[in-house]
Nucleic acid binder design. Structure first.
Length: 275
DNA sequence: CTTGTACCCTGACCGC
DNA sequence: TGCGGTCAGGGTACAA
């Protein structure tokens, strides 16, 4: 569930606390959260005694840039969470701690992941750069222009919602914000990506930007599993216009919100104002 | 190249 | 009270 606004919220929370700190010990409690071909032993050995130079984010990946130019890549997927403290701040909230990183200020960074769909891996700078180059533009950065969105959609027969969620086309958008942005733009999520007019692409571009910025300002959406650092909730869930609202009236036109399944995911949309 | 589908995982939830 | 079935969905592997 963490998408761009949620991962960016976590990045900002952690950056203030972790930048400049060194990792003094790494403990992996759930080996399967270290993503192949990395191994838990190699991961722990590589990260130990490194300084965390900066916290970054690309698409939905959280990045810890280490001294020596290696990059720890964190995928939170559905249930990954972080906590930071001299001990677990809320053991009832963090019941599946998969990894711990001791820091040189006496605190520990805890990575918790109930379903263990998330993962950690450490990459050298060159390998990370190659992987990052395959991702689409960051929607809140300058390079994401209406023309860039038009290029991502051009010629696509797949539904526009699926194209928006394809990380190679546009980075950081998942199921919630794809649905919300399409509603804000008044575009039917089932239409082929390549079928949007230039005006519609322009409207959708603005809607993506606005939706993500508002969600970021609200520290993300806590709909089910997502929490920011130390269990803090987001606030955007009260402002969702379609996601999770099947059968409820559209806040714009009053028609009941519908749910369909696309690529195995629920898509929520308003049949009244997403023509 | 594109597009679609199965899989991973656990807990919440629902109907009986 | 328990119990089985369904669902949540990001990224990846793989098939067509």
């Amino acid at each position: 569930m963490p998408e761009l606004p949620e991962v960016e919220t976590i990045r900002r929370d952690l950056a203030a606390e972790l930048e400049g700190r060194s990792v003094t010990a790494v403990r992996i409690h759930q080996p399967d959260i270290v993503m192949p071909p990395d191994t838990p032993e190699a991961f722990a050995r590589t990260v130990r005694d490194r300084r965390i130079e900066a916290l970054g984010r690309r698409a939905k990946y959280l990045l810890l840039r280490l001294s020596g130019d290696d990059v720890v890549q964190v995928q939170l997927r559905m249930t990954g969470r972080f906590a930071l403290g001299t001990s677990l701040p809320d053991p009832g909230e963090f019941t599946h701690v998969a990894a711990e990183f001791d820091l040189d200020d006496g605190r520990t960074l805890f990575y918790d992941d109930v379903r263990r769909l998330g993962g950690l891996r450490v990459l050298d700078a060159e390998t990370w750069a190659e992987r990052a180059s395959r991702l689409g533009p960051e929607p809140l950065e300058e390079g994401f222009t209406p023309a860039a969105l038009a290029e991502a959609l051009a010629g696509r027969e797949a539904p526009v919602k699926n194209v928006l969620m394809d990380q190679r086309r546009v980075a950081g958008i998942g199921n919630i914000y794809a649905a919300e942005a399409l509603h804000a733009a008044g575009v039917d999520p089932r239409r082929a990506g390549g079928s949007l007019s230039e005006d519609e692409v322009g409207t959708l571009h603005g809607a993506i930007r606005t939706t993500l910025e508002e969600a970021l300002a609200a520290a993300g959406t806590t709909f089910r599993d997502y929490r920011a650092v130390n269990g803090r909730s987001g606030r955007f869930q009260s402002r969702l216009r379609v996601y999770g609202r099947e059968g409820e009236p559209c806040r714009r036109c009053g028609a009941p919100i519908e749910r369909v399944v696309q690529a195995g995911r629920s898509t929520f949309f308003c049949p009244g104002c997403q023509g």
